[in-house]
C-alpha cells in the first residue's frame, strides 16, 4: 500500500511500498553484479596484443587503400545499377504482399471467421493457448486468419536478408534474382508490421461514418481506411526502400548479385584501392537514397 498511516498517525504516501522498494533494489544489485562478472570474463578472454595492435594495422590498410583506383569505376556501373534495382523492385514486391497481410493482421480489419468446433479439435491445446495469449482471442470465436498473418510477419522478420540470400542462392542459384527474392521476403514482415500498427491506430468514427452511409465493405476500405493510412504507407515504403539499398549492397557477398560481388572479389585478392572505391560508391548510393526518401517523405506529409 503506497498510502498508509504511520506511528505518529500521519497519512503518508510513497510511490512504492516496502517490499516493492526492496525488490527494485535487489534487481539493480543483480544487474550490477552481472555487469561486473561479464566484464571480468570478456577481459580475461581478450587477446590484448591484437587490441593494442589494431590502430597500426588499420593505418596500414588505410595507406594501401589510398588513393582509390578510380579507373575501376567503369566496371562498377552495372553492379551498382543491379543493387539499386534489387532494392527498388524488392520493396515493390514486398509492399504488394505486405498490404493484404497487414489488413489481415490488424485487429480492426481482420475477418473474424469462427472456426468450426470440429476443426478446433485438431489444434493441439498448447497451440490454442499460445494463440489465445498472443492475440488475445480464442480460435473458437476469432478463427485462424489473424494468427496466420502474424506468423507470416514474424517468420519474415526473424531471418536476416543475408541469410535469406544464402538460402535462396542454393535454391534458385546465384545472381540478381536470389537477391531480389531475399530483399522482398525480408521486407514483407517489416512493412506489414508497421502498416498493421498504423491500421490499428485509425480513427474508428470516420470508418463508422462511411459505414453508416450504406457503403459496402470494399467502399468502407477505400473511403474510410485507406485515406487515413496513406501517409503511413508512403512513409513505410520509402523507409524500407532506404534500408533495402543498404542491405542489397552486401547481398553479393553470398553471391546474390549487386555490388557486393565486386566487393568480395576485391577483398579476396587484397586489392585495397578497389575496396575503397567500392565503399565510396556505396556511400554515394546510400546518400542518394537517403536524399530521395527525405524528399518523398516531405512531399507526402
Amino acid at each position: 500500500m503506497p498510502t498508509r498511516i504511520n506511528s505518529k498517525n500521519v497519512k503518508v504516501w510513497q510511490v512504492r511500498d516496502r517490499n516493492g522498494q526492496l525488490l527494485r533494489w535487489a534487481m539493480w544489485m543483480t544487474a550490477a553484479i552481472l555487469f561486473y562478472l561479464s566484464w571480468m570474463k570478456i577481459s580475461a578472454e581478450t587477446t590484448w596484443y591484437f587490441f593494442f595492435d589494431a590502430p597500426r594495422i588499420a593505418a596500414d590498410i588505410g595507406t594501401r587503400a589510398f588513393p582509390p583506383r578510380w579507373e575501376y569505376i567503369t566496371s562498377l556501373g552495372k553492379p551498382i545499377w543491379d543493387t539499386f534495382n534489387i532494392a527498388t523492385l524488392g520493396t515493390v514486391i514486398a509492399l504488394v504482399i505486405a498490404v493484404p497481410v497487414a489488413f489481415l493482421a490488424a485487429q480492426n480489419t481482420t475477418p473474424k471467421i469462427p472456426l468450426h468446433p470440429w476443426a478446433v479439435g485438431f489444434i493441439p491445446p498448447f497451440v490454442r493457448k499460445f494463440i489465445m495469449t498472443t492475440t488475445g482471442e480464442d480460435v473458437y470465436s476469432a478463427g485462424l486468419i489473424r494468427p496466420f498473418a502474424l506468423l507470416v510477419i514474424v517468420s519474415s522478420r526473424s531471418i536476416n536478408s543475408l541469410i535469406w540470400a544464402l538460402l535462396l542462392v542454393s535454391i534458385v542459384g546465384p545472381g540478381v534474382f536470389a537477391g531480389l527474392l531475399a530483399i522482398s521476403i525480408r521486407s514483407i514482415g517489416f512493412c506489414a508490421k508497421l502498416l498493421y500498427e498504423a491500421i490499428e491506430e485509425i480513427d474508428a468514427t470516420q470508418v463508422e461514418a462511411i459505414r453508416a452511409t450504406g457503403a459496402s465493405g470494399w467502399q468502407v476500405m477505400v473511403y474510410g481506411i485507406v485515406p487515413q493510412i496513406l501517409p503511413a504507407f508512403a512513409g513505410i515504403a520509402v523507409f524500407r526502400w532506404d534500408i533495402n539499398i543498404r542491405e542489397s549492397t552486401v547481398l553479393g557477398l553470398v553471391g546474390a548479385g549487386g555490388i557486393g560481388l565486386q566487393l568480395q572479389g576485391s577483398l579476396n585478392i587484397l586489392a585495397w584501392p578497389q575496396v575503397s572505391l567500392i565503399l565510396v560508391v556505396i556511400l554515394v548510393a546510400v546518400i542518394l537514397g537517403e536524399w530521395i526518401s527525405a524528399k518523398v517523405r516531405a512531399a507526402i506529409i
Binding site: T205, Q206, Y223
Partner: peptide
Amino acid sequence: FQEYALVERLSVMENVLSGRLGY
C-alpha cells in the same frame, strides 16, 4: 456525428459524395 467524423484527408467534395456510396 459529434466529432463530425469527416474523413480528414479527403476533400470536402469527396466527403459529401461519400454519402452516395450506398448508391
